[in-house]
Amino acid sequence: MQEETATIDTLIRDEAQRARILRGFEIGDRTFRLLTQTAAIAVLVILAGVIFSLIYGSMPTWRAFGLGFLTSESWNPVTEKFGALPAIYGTLLTSIIAMLIGVPISLGIAIFLTEICPEKLRRTIGIAIELLAGIPSIIYGIWGLFVFAPFFQTYVQPPLIDIFANIPVLNQLFAGPPYGIGLLTAGLILAIMVLPFITSITREVFDTVPPVLKEAAYGIGCTRWEVMRRVVIPYTRVGIIGGVMLGLGRALGETMAVTFVIGNAHRIVPSIMAPGTTISASIANEFTEAVGELYTSSLVALGLILFFITFIVLAAARLMLMRIEKKAGV
């Protein structure tokens, strides 16, 4: 009898303990879920915060200049007249130069690594190319200023000026004097910097091509180039464009490397060898020295424009890459 009560007691106690533990489980689960969800939403909040703070910080500029800020060419801290056009022009021009040079070379490297390179070297060379992405941008900057620019000024720019001297249009684009630094130099450095990004995405999308397709093409006697040109590249076109856009997004927003070699001149001249400026370089160069509300807010407004442009480019890149991922998944 006594024994039985004891068992029942233990049972009741066990039951209560069980319930407590289970409740603990449930509370823990809910708390953890809420915690992770909050963190996930925080990512969205940060993005919203960035956009709102830039809009808020640039309000004085929009009030003072309106949309004319986008099209005005003057940048005069003394008279407090600011316009974004030279910086936007420099940003776009340097990025276009970077893409014109960087994209074909990146594609070449990707083709080399997926089709030509011997299996043994593939990993090593792939890692080496990716290391280019690991080098901090300030290193590209200091190297560009002290090593590349002097070389460019002495050995490349004078011949370019001479060659194009008598050809209309081109003699405007490549007009002297050779400064070494300038828009073209910045564009070339950016081209090297975007190589690893475009290469690695292109390699990834090349790998999504079903081997059967390539084998079929080789089977009917296509050369390697024809397989790439007629099968692999058309199949992965969307992904390649996505990778290029991703590289473009990088180039547009790149700051330190450009700041070193751009020359920081707020003006638009036809020559691409002249000093200029980009949005990010202007902010990096001038923000801490900017006195007065309007000067600071104009730089923040430049930041807002940059964020807007890169956001669109990067979003487009993502959408394209998502499309090819879906294709590979099917």
Binding site: L54, L246, G253, E254, G303, L306, F307
Partner: peptide, 8 residues
């Protein structure tokens, strides 16, 4: 955000 300009 992964490739957004860090200066922003």
């Amino acid at each position: 955000l992964l490739s957004a300009p860090s200066i922003v």
